[in-house]
Design a protein around this nucleic acid. Structure first.
Lengths: 351, 351
DNA sequence: AAACCCCATGGAAACGTTTCCATGCGAGGG
DNA sequence: CCCTCGCATGGAAACGTTTCCATGGGGTTT
């Protein structure tokens, strides 16, 4: 039936009685074309339903006019917000975005990068999971890579991949100071990263407590992979083992979710029995009962900024370390003064 | 610097001492190449860090090897889940996905479709907002369009755009029967679509009640745009105006959120004073207190299936009406038997 | 032994753009 | 009046791939 092939510059040129170069000039905006000719070309194009082929153009220009975006999981609220930011910025710059989810798997990340390189994307934005080495290779493969929302665990020696991050340290400091200011002394940190050296949130937590003269009990810093089951197990372990904690700072929304569910399961009232706060202000924080105090990371801005960085400012890339965007402490009802010292649930004396 | 241009078939051919046709055959998998030659080509390619250009291939093949995906908002949990499904399927089929958000604006949708057409995508999956006319044009422009998760409000005359949907009617029927079965008689439907004829959920709600012999009070069917503010306003209006409703069925998660917040604001206990259920089982439904009963739509499956449809089964497309995927009623604690007939807000609730 | 066929291979022509370069032409200055 | 300059325009060459077609050679069949 109507599976006519799309019309091309050649068709338009013939129909308008001009050369193909002129048609190209009209559509690419370069060069000069007399108004009369331009009108004639545009009319012909409209009549033929002409639509310039991005493939032809890309081939000639050696760029596709699109960028790649790699996140661990598009259904994660933070990632989704970040994606939205990237889309918003890309739209203003007239680029399209190829999105893919790596599921936190370095091998899949590498695979996606490979594919994006074949697509000749103009740049790649990634929320990385893999290790330094993988990405150093990737940076070689792709024109430009920007990390957004997360960086690699590797040694912070030469940060040759530019990045846009939330000021996690500042956010954790703020919420830790807030909890300490309410009078808490036994504050748990839920969500240390299992292997390897402590990451920025844990470090900020420790540093803030130290600065406030509150001793850090190793027992209260619990590691957990960022997955629902692991988070729940970690939270359950913590709250059962240490009935005397008066506040829990969850390092991410999955951890916060776990803390809330476990507290409910153990019949702990929030914040009367235990205060809960978390990093990442997701939608449900407000719907919780009580609503959860959280450190809001500007996920959308991070995405937007990363996109600007990768497309507009190739010069600034990598200079001056990561771009840090401010967090905000959103105080809701889930934190209060600590309950007077007393045991609850067959507590084990651990102090 | 190392801004060498990427190597091409020509480079590889020269380096391996073969013709470019042979290199192409090795990488595209077509034709036959002797093992020895193949190895030589692969070695040369590896040495040169060769990566076939998707642009060149796309130009020749007249297809980009990617599909377009248009959703209203990637941060919406349902959309995000749908996107994840599409990505999963596209991955298995070796295609990439260009994602964009239209914000529910038909003009933006049209613009995105235009852009995708320029990219010569192999197909488009859309959760549409625009009206029938727009999309009929789009379908002409693009090779193939599939609707996912939502269809157009237009008359269901000639469904020439294939679609993959949740069985909303079944889901609403199930939850309505459940509420009626608990004894509710004054059940509100929150989230009728403002303009135009009633959509499938409202129709199913009315039909089910009619079938059960429960009269539908027009006053209890309230319209609301699917936005936070509108949802909240609608919910507040409903619950303040009609203190005698014993159950609210929210037609979407934003509406459900609004119902929960308004109920809390009005000091209505759930489910003692009012039962709440909603369509769309999002993460916070379980974190709510009490956890919310919801109709789960298989968003991920919908995305996956839509992607299969658009890529694998061009023949089946459009035949036999929309593909309906089953919903599931997830019963949690937010619904109970109706309170004995009495006015709400009779002073201070004893807590 | 001759005819044949299939396989491996290379050359060359697309695919649809952009852009360099050449051409023609009208206007303005010497 | 001629030279020059600038502008509008067209032809043609790239960009990197796939694929048709031709070619040559070795093995099989008669």
């Amino acid at each position: 039936m109507t599976d006519r092939r799309p019309s091309t510059v050649k068709d338009v040129a013939a129909s308008a009685g001009v050369g193909i170069a002129t048609v190209s000039r009209v559509f690419s905006g370069t060069g000069s074309v007399s108004p009369a000719t331009r009108d004639r070309v545009l009319a012909a194009a409209r009549a033929l339903d002409y639509r310039p082929s991005a493939l032809g153009r890309g081939l000639k220009l050696r760029r596709s006019g699109g960028i790649g975006l790699i996140v661990p999981d598009v259904t994660d609220p933070f990632c989704a917000e970040l994606v939205a930011g990237v889309l918003a910025c890309a739209r203003t710059l007239g680029e399209h975005v190829i999105v893919d989810a790596a599921g936190g798997d370095p091998a899949r990340e590498a695979e996606i990068v490979e594919r994006l390189a074949e697509q000749r994307v103009d740049g790649v934005i990634a929320m990385p999971a893999g290790d330094e080495a993988d990405w150093r290779g990737a940076a070689r493969v792709c024109s430009s890579v920007v990390f957004a929302g997360r960086v690699l665990p590797g040694p912070p020696d030469v940060p040759d991949v530019p990045s846009v991050l939330a000021d996690d340290a500042g956010g954790v400091r703020a919420v830790t100071e807030y909890l300490a200011g309410l009078g808490h002394r036994r504050i748990a940190f839920l969500g240390a990263v299992p292997g390897g050296p402590p990451r920025v949130r844990e470090r900020a937590f420790r540093a803030t407590l130290a600065q406030l003269g509150v001793p850090v009990e190793e027992d209260l810093v619990v590691a957990a992979r960022p997955a629902r089951d692991a988070a729940y197990a970690a939270a359950a372990g913590l709250l059962q083992r240490r009935g005397d904690v008066t506040a829990v700072l969850a390092a991410g929304h999955l951890l916060g979710e776990a803390a809330v569910l476990v507290a409910r399961e153990l019949d702990l009232r929030v914040p009367a029995d235990v205060s809960i706060a978390m990093v990442d202000d997701v939608a449900w924080a407000e719907l919780c009962d009580p609503p959860l105090t959280a450190v809001a990371r500007p996920a959308r801005d991070i995405g937007y900024r990363a996109c600007e960085l990768v497309l507009r400012e190739p010069a600034r890339r990598g200079r001056g370390g990561p771009v840090l965007l401010p967090t905000e402490l959103v105080v809701r009802g889930s934190c209060g003064p600590p309950r007077a010292q007393r045991r609850r649930r067959r507590g084990n004396p651990a102090d």
